[in-house]
């Protein structure tokens, strides 16, 4: 399935900004390119009609991610920049190329986007959710219904993981802020 012009343009944006993030020598430049990457990915999620994921990308990528990365490099030491682009280690290049090949080999095995015989469409589980979600939970958004009701226990686990990580960070860094 050939990509539409919009999809093709988005892929160029995403790949270009990802490459810029990788090759820019200055860490601050990398962070700026990474925020461009986040913008492209959010547009791609919207094109693929996954607005929930797109909203997550927007909320985390636009506001929180950039600032936490900035704070991190503000509190650590940056290498002094004399070149614009980073130099490449041939061993790293080989490793990355092998990784990309391994990942790329799986792409043809995936069903096409929107294909009617993709497992996610033909599987009876997703069809069950689509048919019964509103009747069972009274929630219009199926994603929310699945997350909070059908796999609510899993979501509780995720929330506890976030909570535990937060409390652990607070406990470790607490001595610095006690005024």
């Amino acid at each position: 399935m050939a990509p539409t012009p919009v999809e093709a343009g988005l892929l160029v944006v995403i790949l270009g900004s990802a490459l810029a993030t990788a090759v820019l020598r200055d860490v601050l430049g990398s962070i700026i390119a990474f925020s461009a990457y986040s913008l492209g990915v959010a547009m791609l999620w919207v094109v693929l009609r996954a607005p929930d994921v797109g909203l997550t990308e927007a909320a985390v990528g636009a506001g929180v991610m950039t600032i936490l990365l900035l704070l991190t490099i503000a509190k650590t030491v940056r290498p002094s920049e004399d070149r614009v682009l980073a130099s490449f280690d041939p061993k790293t290049l080989v490793l990355v190329a092998a990784f990309v090949l391994a990942l790329g080999a799986t792409v043809p095995a995936l069903p096409a986007v929107g294909s009617p015989d993709a497992p996610v469409v033909s599987s009876e589980v997703s069809q069950y959710y689509l048919d019964h979600a509103y009747k069972d939970t009274g929630v219009e958004n199926v994603v929310t219904a699945v997350l909070a009701a059908y796999r609510g226990f899993d979501t509780l686990g995720e929330a506890v993981v976030v909570f535990t990580a937060g409390v652990a960070v607070v406990a470790v860094l607490k001595r610095e802020v006690t005024a």
Binding site: L71, K75, T76, V77, A148, A165, G166, K174, E176, V177
Partner: peptide
């Protein structure tokens, strides 16, 4: 479900806020 979403929102915003303040005030070189 909406109450639970509020709870998750409280956790996430609390983690982000405290992470920000802690990293900001944190490890001075």
């Amino acid at each position: 479900i909406e109450l639970i979403e509020l709870g998750i929102g409280a956790i996430v915003s609390g983690v982000i806020t405290s992470l920000f303040f802690l990293i900001d005030a944190g490890f001075d070189v």
